[in-house]
Design a protein around this nucleic acid. Structure first.
Length: 515
RNA sequence: GACCCCGUAGCUCAGUGGUAGAGCAUUUGACUUUUAAUCAAAGGGCCGAUGGUUCGAGACCAUCCGGGGUCACCA
């Protein structure tokens, strides 16, 4: 490893730098020796790359006689006393023309600039001989010297206008660990996150327009509840108590409905101490909303309107390509009962079957179940193995068995069921809703049953939250509650099949070794 | 947690037990409208880590680390 003797004072961290990075440090020193500040404080921009590219009219070049742009150098083509480079800003890329005659001082330091450095240019816009709208720089200034090498990909546009990328930065591990580089060099990544932002803001606007209240509830909770999942545990030193990172905010939002709000929602970061895969990250975002005096049927209509509207807003169409499927979010979505869908799949209505009967059905239909599985578990397996993967187009699955839903209200006409739906798309669950259970006697009985299940060894079962029960005893109006998995919604509306591609910084195992 | 695949230059990748390779990027030189710019030359490697087999290992074996995928659990 080469060590720059004159840079000895910069520190040990430099020992791991490669030749290109050491060269950049030398360039930085040279720039400073020439009296150039490689990190000036401000730059006044008048235009973005896309402003210029979209706005330039060959018949009215005077409209762009004075522009000022800044961006990161992504390509340089030096031809002696003239240089072309592409700079990239938030909006896109534009070519800049730098001529020695016009920029004698800047041209001196051009050799000390690299791909990755950020520059600002002032000048006029013109179209080159080869037809590209470009900025003719009359002034140029270095705004930031980059000390690391970007994994730069070359791009070419073929005669059909298709973009060909050569040797794109593709190593998924590096892309996730150094997302800032991914964002710089893989421009489609930015568009996914732009859509994510649009989905969330669109949802927020929809709720705001209805007059519902956005709230915040505790992330650190003395008891966790509202879902069946294992929590993360932490410790508060001053109080000397165990606290849990929330697995859901349901029980807090219902307390607010008890408190008199008639519509509350939260974009809720949840934490579940479970496995990770391409649809699960330990922390994820769930939007939960509770509306008083409404039921799950009403909520179905709202979900349809909301999601079809979001799809249109983000993609300009109700159709989306996902994992080889063409999905349509044109309302209305299909509605079917859970038992109806099972009957459709296996040709038998298993409503009211006991454990032994369900086991026979499972065996007959090649549904794998563990030997000690409960009746409910077998039922669940039949649904997930025979039905779930067939639910490609948006489908509301309605009316779940009461044992699977300890916080949902008993069905108004079907004993043994609750008023609940889940929205399935592309074989996975996107939203979950019930008419909320507000009968305090029933709610207590259901949570106590959960406590029994937990005592029997199911560590995902819910715990009894006495304060929540107290609130329900004070009295909660009839209420509909809904949760939408935001990460999954973003995945589907942006065509991404891995949750890691809709999170800026997905959870990764720590690296043991230095680079 | 189980199984399968992967880890070689800054990036993308070849490398069939016998001297460590290519393209881009970098450096030097030429070039005042180029665009994967071009032309000429050069530098750059703990081959993920540790052990083993072998006269000889980037390659074969074992273990570990990291990643991807499938499954299980879940949203």
């Amino acid at each position: 490893m080469k060590i720059l003797s004159k840079n000895k004072d910069i520190g040990m961290s430099l020992l791991h730098r490669n030749d290109q990075e050491l060269r950049r440090l030398e360039e930085l020193n040279e720039l400073r020796q020439h009296g150039i500040n490689p990190y000036p404080p401000v730059f006044e921009k008048t235009h973005s790359s896309v402003n210029v590219l979209n706005g330039f009219d060959d018949n009215k070049p005077e409209e762009f006689a004075q522009v000022s742009l800044a961006g990161r150098i992504m390509a340089i083509r030096k031809m002696g006393k003239a240089t072309f480079c592409h700079i990239q800003d938030d909006a896109g890329r534009i070519q800049v023309y730098l001529k020695k005659d016009d920029l004698p001082e800047f041209y001196e330091i051009l050799g000390n600039l690299d791909i990755g450095d950020i520059i600002g240019v002032k000048g006029h816009v013109f179209r080159t001989k080869t037809g590209e709208v470009s900025v003719y720089a009359k002034e140029a200034i270095l705004l930031c010297k980059s000390l690391r090498v970007l994994p730069i990909a070359k791009e070419e546009t073929d005669e059909n206008g298709n973009k060909i990328v050569y040797d794109a930065f593709a190593d998924k591990e590096l892309r996730y660990r150094r997302r800032y580089i991914d964002l710089i060099v893989n421009h489609e990544v930015k568009s996914v996150f732009a859509k994510r932002s649009k989905i969330i803001s669109g949802m927020r606007r929809y709720f705001e327009d209805k007059g519902w209240l956005e709230v915040e509830t505790p992330i650190l909770q003395p008891l966790y509840g509202g879902a069946t999942a294992r929590p993360f545990t932490t410790h508060h030193n001053a109080l000397d108590i165990e606290l849990y990172l929330r697995i859901a905010d349901e029980l807090y939002l219902k307390r607010l409905i008890v408190g008199g709000y008639e519509g509350v929602y939260e974009f809720c970061k949840n934490f579940r101490n479970e496995g990770m895969d391409r649809s699960h990250n330990p922390e994820f975002t769930l939007m939960e909303i509770y509306i008083a005096y409404k039921d799950y049927m009403w909520m179905m209509g709202m979900v349809e309107e909301l999601i079809s509207g979001l799809c249109l807003a983000v993609n300009g169409t109700h159709e989306v390509e996902y994992d080889g499927h063409k999905l349509s979010f044109q309302a209305p979505f299909r509605r079917a009962t859970m038992h109806g869908l099972i009957e459709e799949a296996i040709g038998e209505n298993i409503f009211g079957y006991d454990r032994d009967q369900l086991l026979v059905v499972a065996r007959k239909n090649n549904v794998e179940v563990e030997n000690n599985a409960s009746g409910m578990k077998i039922f669940d397996e039949i649904f997930s193995q025979k039905v779930e993967h067939t639910l490609i187009q948006p489908t509301f699955v309605m009316d779940y068995p009461v044992e699977m839903s300890p916080l949902a209200k008993a069905h108004r006409s079907e004993p043994g069921l609750v008023e609940r739906f889940e929205l399935y798309v592309a074989g996975t669950e996107l939203a979950n809703c019930f008419t909320e259970l507000n009968d305090p006697i029933d709610q207590r009985a259901r949570l106590e049953e959960q406590a029994r299940v937990k005592a029997a060894g199911d560590d995902e079962a819910m715990v009894v939250d006495e304060d929540f029960l107290y609130a329900i005893e004070v009295g909660m109006p009839p209420t509909a509650g809904l949760g939408i998995g935001i990460d999954r919604l973003v995945m589907i509306l942006t065509g991404q099949t891995s949750i890691r591609d809709v999170l800026f910084f997905p959870q990764m195992k720590p690296e043991k070794q230095h680079h």
